[in-house]
Simulated assay, not measured.
Amino acid sequence: MRSFLYVLSALAVMGLAFWAYHENYKTQAALAEVERLQDDIAENRETLSILKAEWAYLNRPDRLRDLADLNFERLELMPLAPEQFGRVEEIAYPAPPVPEALEPIPLSFKERQEP
């Protein structure tokens, strides 16, 4: 009976060692994936900062003004002036839709007679 318990214990230890071995490699693979993703994020952030700098450079007001002047015949763009802006109160918003009555409401004119 003791030998059976020794064999069973040895098999349990080998099974746990096998499980720990696989978990160790899964953990190392997950850490490598996290490191790769962090490198990708850092690269994408760097690319984004470069693109933002290029966008700011291309949208300089003096450059845009020169481009508008060069293409005036084709685009007919005028420079912005304060008189071109309106107030929010001047905007004509559409009227909200009026909901339809589901059932007609009977009105009695006898009750509403004026003296």
Results as ranks from 00 to 15, higher is better:
Leu8Lys: 08
Pro94Thr: 00
Arg63Val: 15
Ala92Asn: 14
Ala92Lys: 14
Ala42Asp: 14
Asn71Ala: 15
Pro61Tyr: 11
Phe4Tyr: 05
Ala101Phe: 06
Tyr21Leu: 06
Met78Glu: 07
Met78His: 09
Arg36Val: 03
Pro106Ala: 13
Gly15Lys: 01
Leu51Phe: 10
Pro99Tyr: 00
Glu90Leu: 01
Leu67Gln: 09
Arg36Asp: 13
Arg45Gln: 04
Gln28Trp: 06
His22Thr: 12
Glu54Trp: 07
Ala17Pro: 00
Val34Glu: 14
Leu48His: 07
Ala29Gly: 02
Glu73Val: 13
Asp69Cys: 02
Tyr6Ser: 14
Val7Trp: 14
Ala53Leu: 06
Asn24Arg: 11
Leu51Gln: 15
Thr27Ser: 10
Ser3Gly: 04
Leu77Tyr: 07
Ala68Arg: 09
Leu37His: 10
Ala81Asn: 11
Trp55Phe: 05
Pro104Tyr: 07
Leu70Tyr: 09
Ala29Asn: 05
Leu5Gln: 13
Met1Tyr: 03
Pro104Lys: 09
Glu35Ile: 01
Met1Pro: 02
Arg2Asn: 03
Arg74Leu: 10
Leu67Pro: 02
Ala56Phe: 05
Ala29Thr: 10
Pro82Arg: 08
Gln28Tyr: 03
Asp39Gly: 03
Ile91Leu: 12
Ala20Arg: 10
Ala29Pro: 01
Ser3Thr: 15
Thr47Ile: 12
Leu31Cys: 02
Leu16Trp: 09
Ile105Thr: 03
Tyr6Ala: 11
Asp62Cys: 00
Ala81Asp: 14
Leu31Glu: 08
Leu70Cys: 13
Ala10Ile: 02
Glu100Val: 15
Glu83Arg: 11
Ala101Leu: 14
Leu64Glu: 01
Ala20Gly: 04
Ser49Trp: 12
Ala92Ser: 07
Asp39Glu: 13
Leu8Trp: 12
Ala53Thr: 09
Thr27Val: 08
Arg45Tyr: 13
Pro94Ala: 00
Ala53Lys: 15
Phe18Lys: 13
Pro104Asn: 08
Arg60Asn: 06
Ala20Ser: 07
Pro97Thr: 07
Ile50Thr: 10
Ala95Cys: 04
Pro106Asn: 00
Met14Glu: 11
Gln84Trp: 14
Ala68Lys: 07
Asn71Gln: 12
Ala68Thr: 06
Leu102Lys: 10
Tyr25Leu: 15
Tyr57Gly: 02
Leu37Gly: 05
Ala101Gly: 07
Leu8Ile: 04
Pro106Ile: 07
Arg45Trp: 10
Leu64Tyr: 01
Glu35Asp: 12
Ala12Lys: 02
Leu5Gly: 01
Gly86Ser: 04
Glu35Thr: 13
Val7Ile: 08
Ile105Gly: 00
Glu73Asp: 15
Pro61Gly: 01
Asn59Lys: 05
Met14Phe: 10
Gln84Lys: 15
Phe72Leu: 12
Gln38Ile: 00
Asp40Ala: 14
Thr47Pro: 02
Met1Cys: 06
Asn24Pro: 00
Glu46Pro: 03
Pro104Trp: 04
Gly86Asp: 00
Arg36Ser: 14
Pro82Tyr: 00
Leu64Val: 01
Ser3Asn: 04
Glu89Pro: 00
Ser49Asp: 11
Arg87Glu: 11
Thr27Leu: 05
Pro79Cys: 00
Asp39Tyr: 09
Val34Arg: 04
Leu58Asp: 11
Trp19Asp: 04
Ile105Arg: 02
Ala30Met: 12
Arg2Gln: 12
Val88Gly: 03
